[in-house]
Design a protein around this nucleic acid. Structure first.
Lengths: 222, 222
DNA sequence: AACAAAATTTAGACAAAACTAAATTTATTG
DNA sequence: CAATAAATTTAGTTTTGTCTAAATTTTGTT
């Protein structure tokens, strides 16, 4: 299988991540994510096009080819397995895993990843609740909806968080919320769309911004 | 602490490894080990000298400065901890670990390494029996001597192997010899310096070359 | 539809790490 | 102690991935 450079892998991953978020991938968007200049991105897009990894017509959103998506998914798989390892085995917290997983995802060894997967017990979801692609690139989509859209008075379980910024994650830590936590919405404040919730018998107020990034499900569907 | 490029790390590691083996580190030796040309090595040696990591006068052996040695030891520490992880946790065999550990040793995260060390139970030796440097660069030297120099008829234990070539290690696998194996020398053949040994109640003949790379100790010293 | 604003590309440079080929320095040895 | 062999360096390229500044293309607005 095609061997990619570290940079090429990071570009593919970025394009995949934008695609996953539903944001169209443009030169500029990629440049911002990778903290590169648009000129550099332009060069790399040409290269990835020539290698058959993306479809690219200037000013239109960039799309991965199936080959490109396959490679992107294998990087995502490695990233999420390593994140799981860091949390489950080495006791890393949510905020600590990203910079390390970002490095580990580029290690090249089929054997390593299949053994790691086995060692971790073939996890389906990573510590953020994101699905871990299978070796052939299949994803088990998250079943759930944003806490901001959940009904009042129903027992809910946190299944994922849709943001991995450090500040967001340490806030969740602070309020003692993690994957698997039970939540009940006590009240909704129409003025700012914030919600009052019960987490571990503590009542707190969550802004709409926060609530919209927490994905929950009915406990029963578990 | 000084941040090194992947190449710089590999050069330091190579110089350290030669030093450890007692072979003087010359331009050529390094070039061979890293499969680079002497011209490339020459450039890099200049760079490492300027960074204060090596002492270098052309045509004389290259020596690490204490700063250089410290950095080399931290890479060796990472390499050997990862090797231990691959074998103890992921069930890798001797021959499989090298290419992967070679990549993992460059991951940069103090936290990762200290957690990994803890997770593995603070091992003193890696799967080849080589000592794992402590965080401050101390080594617990191997206690033992080459099997080629051991006496006849005494119960011995394999404590290390001084060669990590694939062919050597798979030969050891084949004859069912690993760290911790018991060995008794039955006879020595003066003609070719080979020895007849008992490993797990099987008698086989080991060449001098092989016997000289297997480090053993008296079981009692354990 | 024209034109300003925004997005993208092109052109030209640079740094890192490698290379080849030629020049130079050191070592060896007859 | 020359002269040859071996080791090392220098000079000049190459590749990869980045950059800045300038040019160009597209988009959106009036």
């Amino acid at each position: 299988m095609l061997k990619l450079s570290l940079s090429e892998e990071n570009y593919l991953k970025t394009i995949y991540a934008l695609e996953e978020k539903g944001e169209p991938a443009h030169n500029q968007t990629i440049a911002q994510t990778l903290r590169n200049t648009p000129a550099s991105v332009s060069d790399m897009l040409k290269k990835l096009t020539k290698k058959g990894l993306i479809h690219y017509e200037p000013y239109k959103p960039i799309r991965l080819t199936s080959k490109g998506r396959q490679l992107a998914l294998s990087i995502v798989r490695k990233h999420r397995l390593w994140e799981t390892f860091l949390v489950k085995c080495l006791g890393f917290t949510w905020e600590e895993i990203h910079p390390v997983a970002e490095q580990l995802e580029h290690i090249e060894s089929e054997l390593l990843i299949s053994r790691l997967d086995e060692y971790l017990g073939y996890p389906k979801y990573d510590p953020h609740g994101d699905p871990i692609p299978s070796p052939d690139g299949k994803l088990q989509p998250i079943e759930g909806f944003p806490l901001s859209h959940a009904p009042i008075g129903v027992e809910l379980v946190v299944v994922a968080v849709k943001n991995d910024e450090k500040d967001f994650l340490s806030y969740l830590n602070k309020i003692n919320l993690s994957i698997g936590s039970s939540i009940v919405i006590i009240d909704k404040i129409p003025f700012d769309l914030s919600i009052e919730v019960d987490i571990n018998n503590r009542i707190i107020n969550l802004s709409h911004l926060v609530a919209s990034q927490i994905i929950v499900n009915h406990e029963s569907n578990h």
